[in-house]
């Protein structure tokens, strides 16, 4: 065999294992990920283990020893878990109703999706004006003596999380639902299953893995809440979420190590919740659902 032939044969064998010139296409993306994500991430973790005092775990010890800091985990969970659950739960019936084709579907989808494009700050602004003590909502409730406080506390942040998180949940669930073959429900109907049984026994089990994924995504979004916790919340008290604690440590006290440690704790808590949900998801049927999805 000549040398060119040998080289060709080697190239052919490599290509069969996925090693060929197309691998170069990965380079720009990989470089960006390394430079903009992996390096800063590793740097932050490293920073969290280098506090000014207290040894390697000093920053973590400082965070967990201080109840004011430690409690931000519970505060954030108490906001993000209910918000994520509500977003998923509210999306299911609406997406279920909208899974077919009907007149005005595009308009309705657009209206539901608009909050994504507005951003948290504008939403918070709107909430302050609408739900505030002198806003329209309380003016309509003229029969109550004291205005109901729905801003600058837990509820303000909660509403803001629902408004911004719902469109994500809705769009995801709608696409999961349209991936389920509609003939399955028709088949269930011919077998004597009523509307409710069709949903419970056929659609819901096939949708459940999608709901778990959707929950994880909306939860992570809600867990890292920052702008609305400051703008419509009570950032010094009831809505002092973990991202505020991290910001405070890093940019007001200039303790970068503590700030990084809090960010790492934040990531670990998120990962734990996601791991639990995905663990439960793996117990479900996750194969083909027969649809076009």
């Amino acid at each position: 065999m000549t040398r060119t032939q040998t080289r060709l044969a080697v190239r052919h064998r490599l290509a069969e294992r996925g090693v060929d010139r197309q691998l170069w296409l990965l380079v720009p993306g990989l470089a960006c990920v390394l430079a903009l994500f992996v390096y800063p991430f590793a740097y932050g973790i490293g920073l969290s283990f280098q506090p000014a005092e207290g040894g390697v775990f000093g920053a973590y010890r400082a965070f967990f020893a201080d109840a004011y800091q430690r409690d931000t985990i519970a505060t954030t969970l108490s906001l993000s878990l209910p918000a994520a659950i509500l977003n998923v739960a509210a999306s299911v019936p609406i997406a279920y109703r909208m899974r077919g084709r009907f007149r005005g579907k595009r308009l309705l989808t657009t209206v539901l999706v608009v909050p994504i494009t507005l951003g948290t700050v504008l939403t918070a602004e709107g909430l302050l004006n609408y739900l505030g003590p002198a806003g329209w909502f309380n003016r309509l409730l003229f029969f109550v003596d004291e205005p109901i406080r729905l801003t600058n506390n837990y509820w303000g942040v909660f509403f803001s999380l629902v408004i911004t998180g719902f469109p994500f949940a809705f769009l995801l669930i709608l696409s999961y639902l349209s991936g389920i073959d509609p003939t399955l429900e028709r088949a269930a109907a011919t077998l004597g299953a009523g509307r409710r049984q069709r949903f419970q026994r056929i659609t819901l089990p096939l949708l459940a893995p999608g709901l778990a994924t959707t929950f994880c995504l909306t939860f992570v979004l809600a867990f890292s809440v920052f702008p609305s916790a400051v703008l419509v919340g009570d950032p010094a008290g009831t809505t002092r979420v973990i991202s505020i604690a991290a910001y405070h440590a890093a940019y007001e006290v200039y303790d970068y190590s503590l700030g990084s440690a809090i960010a790492v704790v934040m990531g670990v808590v998120e990962l734990l919740v996601v791991a639990i949900v995905l663990g439960l998801r793996s117990l479900l049927y996750t194969g083909s659902t027969g649809g076009k999805g």
Binding site: T183, A187, L191
Partner: peptide
């Protein structure tokens, strides 16, 4: 009557077996 009250069996072209 709705399909579930008719008591007819149906075999679909795509079979429509419940995948789960």
């Amino acid at each position: 009557l709705p399909p579930e009250k008719r008591g007819f069996g149906m075999v679909f072209q795509s079979y429509a077996l419940f995948p789960h």
